[in-house]
Structures are given as structure tokens and as C-alpha cells.
Amino acid sequence: MMHTPRTYVLIHGAWHGGWCWSRIAERLRSHGHRVCSPTLPGLGERRQEPADGIGLETFIRDVCDTLTREQLRDVILVGHSFGGLAVAGAADRLPERIRRLVFLDAFLLPPGVSAFDTLPADVVAKLEDRAADSSSLAPPRPDSLGLTDPADIAYVQARLTPHPIGTYREPLRLAHPLGNGLPVTYLRCVQPLFPGVSEAYRWARETYGDLWSWAQLACGHEGMIDAPERVAGALLAVD
């Protein structure tokens, strides 16, 4: 069944790039939709960009630039994991271009808080020490993200790149409440649950409750890799 054509902009999380959406994009386009999946600064094919000049505001500006450069409107803007922060920032600045926000197992923060503010001081110190020479955080093992299929693990392992540490240091700055009054759907991946976003999910659910829509997906954190049919179906179902 064909759907009324929509525009999806898919924003990846830490260590990833636009490549991680390829299986989702293929399915959305098969239904006649437009899909953009940009790679954020310093990651993926943009990994040669100096990490020491990249912060969370850099990510947010890049998403905004995509929306304006491509003259996109009525967008379903999707943020996975750490990409949820870039999506939240873009919604704060360009709500008139956005139809709905979708947070896919996303990491979210209260305004004025940084990712490092949510971690113990000794953990932050260790991460800062490891990133001293490169201004970047080394990629995790794909299996720590919930992947189990050897082919998927190999696919992701070959593509993950170091992540600019400045995006973890810089607080999320918003002029409006998170979501900026736009329709919001949060899709929680529950098989298995990913601990890295559990506290963010709890905070968002307690804070925004009935103001947002909530749904669970029977897949892991990297559902766009190992459960693309299920994740694409959920994106097609949002109004």
C-alpha cells in the first residue's frame, strides 16, 4: 500500500554516520517517500574534519543546515541515540520546517545539561584522558550496542568512527521546552533494553508524559541495522 509522500530526515547517533540508515531508507523510499540521512560533522565520511572544533552546537547547526539547504518542510525528523540531542536542537530553532519529531531509543537531556554531567566524575576523567590526543572517543564494540549477528557486527565494526568529545562536554542549549511544542513520538527499543539511554528515557517519560506519544519496538538499540523492517514500519505508522 502506498502512503502519501512524506519527507524523512534521519539523524544517526554517536560513532555512526548516514550509512547506518541505508536499510531503513530503502524501505521508506519503496513507499514513495523522500529520505535524507546526513552524516554529522567529524563522523563517517566526514571523519577528517578536526574533532577539536566540533561540539553539540556544531551538530545542531548541521541538521538545521540540511533542512534549509535542501529546502525541506513538513519533515518527520528522526534522531537515534545521541542524535536525539541534535534533533532536539534543530526543533528548537526551525520548528516551522518540522511535522513531527521521532526519538528512536534516543539519548535526551534537560536544557543546560551536558552528556558528561550525567556520568560519574571518575568516568568522565577516564574518557577525557583517553581522548587527550585526538579530541575523540573511540568506538565501542558493536556487540555492546546489542548486535548479535556476525554479519551485522562486521558491517558496523567496519564503519564506526571516533566521536568528537566536545559534543559530550557541551550542554544542550534550548530557548524553548524540549520538543518546542511539536508532535513527538518516542520509540523505545526493548529487546534487549539498552542501558545507555535508560535514564534519559525515564526522565523524558516522567517529564513529558501525555504530551508525547510512546511506543515500544521488539528490537535492540541498533534496530535500523538488525530490524529494519520493524523500525521502518514504526516510522511509516507515525502521523
Rank of each mutant, 00 (worst) to 15 (best):
G84K: 03
L211V: 13
S144D: 13
L160Y: 12
L43Y: 02
S81V: 00
G53N: 06
A131P: 07
A91I: 02
P139A: 12
D52M: 02
D65T: 05
R99M: 00
T68I: 04
D210K: 14
I76Y: 13
E170P: 12
R230L: 15
D65F: 07
A106Y: 05
L127T: 03
A158M: 06
F82T: 01
A204L: 14
H16S: 09
A204K: 05
H3Y: 05
R6W: 09
A121Q: 12
L145V: 00
H31R: 10
E229F: 07
C36H: 15
S30R: 04
L67H: 08
L182H: 07
Q48N: 12
A204C: 12
W214L: 12
I54L: 09
Y208M: 04
V102P: 01
S135L: 01
V190C: 14
P50Y: 03
L119G: 02
K126E: 15
A90K: 04
G42P: 02
R173S: 11
R97K: 11
C36T: 02
A237D: 15
V197W: 00
G32F: 07
G89Q: 01
R230M: 13
L193M: 05
L172W: 09
R99C: 13
G181P: 08
L236A: 11
D105P: 00
R93V: 09
A218P: 12
S134P: 06
P120G: 10
L236K: 09
L127S: 03
W214H: 14
T185A: 11
N180M: 01
R202K: 13
A125F: 06
